[in-house]
Simulated scan of single mutants.
Amino acid sequence: MNPTIKDVAQKANVSIATVSRVLNNLGGYSDKTRQKVNQSIKELGYQPNAIARGLINKRTQTIGVLFPDVSSSFSSALLQGIDEFAHDRNYSVVVCNTDKKGSRTLKYLQLLREKQVDGIIFSSEVLKKEYYEVLESMGIPVVLVSSKTDFAKVPYVKVDDYQAVYDAISYLIAKGHRNIAMISGTEGDPNAGTPRIAGYRKALEDHGISFDNGNIVYGDFSFSSGCTAMEELLLRTTGATAVFAASDEMAIGALSVAAKHGLNVPEDFSIMGYDDLQLAQMVNPPLTTVRQPLHDIGMIASGKLITMIETEEDVSSMTVPHSIVERQTVRSLPSR
Rank of each mutant, 00 (worst) to 15 (best):
Y274C: 03
I324V: 13
S270T: 03
V315S: 14
S256Y: 02
R327Q: 05
D314A: 15
V330M: 00
P285D: 05
N264E: 14
S256V: 00
I271R: 00
V320F: 09
A259V: 05
I252K: 00
K304T: 13
I300T: 05
D276I: 08
G262T: 09
N284M: 14
L333S: 10
E326L: 08
P321L: 07
D296K: 03
F269R: 07
V265M: 13
L279H: 08
S332T: 10
Q281C: 05
E326H: 08
V257I: 15
Q278H: 07
V330S: 03
G262Q: 06
E326I: 11
V257C: 08
G262I: 04
I306K: 04
V257M: 11
R291N: 14
A301N: 10
K304Q: 15
G262A: 06
V290A: 13
E267S: 06
E326S: 12
D276E: 14
E267M: 03
L279S: 12
L263N: 04
E326V: 11
N264A: 15
L294N: 04
I297S: 02
Y274F: 05
H295P: 00
I300L: 05
L305Q: 12
Q281Y: 08
V283K: 10
D276K: 11
L255R: 02
Q328T: 05
N264L: 12
V325P: 04
V283W: 12
I271F: 00
I271D: 00
G273T: 01
M272Y: 07
M318R: 05
P266D: 07
L333Y: 10
K304M: 13
V330L: 03
E310D: 15
E313V: 05
V283F: 10
N264P: 00
Q278S: 12
V283A: 06
S332Y: 05
V290Y: 12
I300P: 00
T307N: 07
V320Q: 12
I297Q: 04
S316M: 11
D296T: 02
Q278V: 11
N264M: 13
Q328C: 06
H322C: 02
F269I: 14
S332A: 07
S302E: 04
L255D: 01
V257K: 09
P266F: 10
G273I: 02
S332E: 11
R291D: 10
M318Q: 09
N284C: 14
I309C: 00
V257P: 07
I324K: 11
V330Y: 01
